[in-house]
Design a protein around this nucleic acid. Structure first.
Lengths: 224, 224
DNA sequence: GGCAGCGGTCAGGATTTTCCTGATAGTGAG
DNA sequence: CTCACTATCAGGAAAATCCTGACCGCTGCC
């Protein structure tokens, strides 16, 4: 371990249920003179305890935890310490979670597929008060937001018209196009048109992607 | 890094697409005088190249790889080097993969949730010619061998053949039939046949139901 | 009042995917 | 050896999807 000036180094908390991953991240951080691992946790309960016990500058948080949904934990941590910086570290594709995670209050999202350099970049950016997501994700999010005026946190789903949203929900429940047409008393062609519009608004390419998105959305939105 | 006797230390290959995880495992291994990391790979192609290039004693293999299904890679590696020991390192619950992995030719299965001690135990056991799985999994497998599977009816997904399971995972990831055919280097017709069998085994009626089931399953059990 | 934009409806026709019905061949169990 | 299972593929019918284009009603704006 490198010797550090304990009084000035930024204090990090690593939350991940894979010990080897914690070791890897710890190794990376210990090689930086200005960063120090102040605590580790392998579940949400430990993470909360650690956050309460000491003053921390940054939390590296894996959203796949055994005892609690990562999004919930983000909200809880922010309720406890509104100014605490949180960088989400995840193995899941960013397009699925990044937006959600940011809306929950995290200040960054980085994939485990990234190497040490990107990790350090992300940590420093978040520590400096910035927000870190990949280039691709950043422009994607900006695009989504650009349509409307300030503040209002908009899930792309919110941009669907009422009718489109109806169709969207039915897709998520497993109805095929024909069934949806029947239920809404319109022609199959109309439903097809709605589907096209939904796909445009959600930036989806294939029919399969639409089903996947819809299923996921209904799963997660149903709870929180 | 610890100084080692290079001529006697056992040579390991780490295959994982998460750099931090490789660092963590490498750290663990470097602290052992009798083990050395001979190479690392973050995808299946690199892994195969490494195995061909040098004489290795053990492969630590994450089955969730970007370019190829882990089970396939195990089979390929064993075709190349039948005596090569493979220890699968996975974040997925063992009940889902352990059996499959052993049948494919790996000699051990350990979850990333485990700590360093267990990891070393597993590596040494496999290096010594043994087979490593958790206590629970071991007795479970023995039971299966000795007649009846225990009372708990396993997930119907467990009844899928390896090939079917591969297709199933790709469906969950959003690949359409054509893409799957391309990735597996078989005809579209073959993939269609697999889909039919999967639907039978999971008692699903439509293509949509299959996608929904697959997405849900992958959400709850993990991702590859 | 006119007009542009959007939401909702639908059609025709080309393309793809899915579904149904076989068929062949290897493997492992009994 | 036979049976069951797995993996591979084909032909052709049926269905879903994609592309292009169209009509109507409502809203907001100059």
């Amino acid at each position: 371990m490198a010797v550090k000036n304990k009084s000035t180094a930024q204090k990090l908390l690593i939350v991940d249920d894979h010990p080897m991953m914690r070791t890897g991240l710890g190794q990376l951080i210990d090689n930086e003179p200005d960063l120090v691992v102040a605590a580790e946790a392998d579940n949400a309960a430990q993470a909360q305890a650690a956050v309460m016990k000491q003053k921390l500058d940054l939390v590296l948080l894996d959203i796949s935890l055994p005892d609690k949904n990562g999004l919930e934990l983000i909200k809880d941590l922010r309720a406890l310490k509104p100014d605490l910086a949180i960088l989400v570290v995840s193995m899941h594709d960013e397009t699925l979670y990044a937006e959600r995670v940011l809306r929950a209050g995290a200040r960054g999202y980085i994939m485990k597929q990234e190497g040490g350099k990107k990790f350090l970049l992300a940590m420093r950016k978040v520590l400096a008060g910035g927000i870190y997501v990949s280039e691709k994700m950043a422009s994607r999010i900006l695009e989504t937001f650009s349509g409307q005026a300030s503040g209002a946190p908009a899930s792309p789903v919110a941009r669907l018209s009422d009718r489109e949203f109806e169709v969207f929900q039915l897709i998520a429940r497993g109805s095929d196009t024909g069934a949806i047409a029947g239920q809404l008393h319109v022609s199959v062609k109309t439903v097809e048109a709605h589907r096209v519009h939904i796909k445009e608004k959600l930036q989806l390419k294939t029919a399969n992607d639409l089903v996947r998105y819809a299923v996921r959305w209904i799963e997660s939105e149903g709870k929180s």
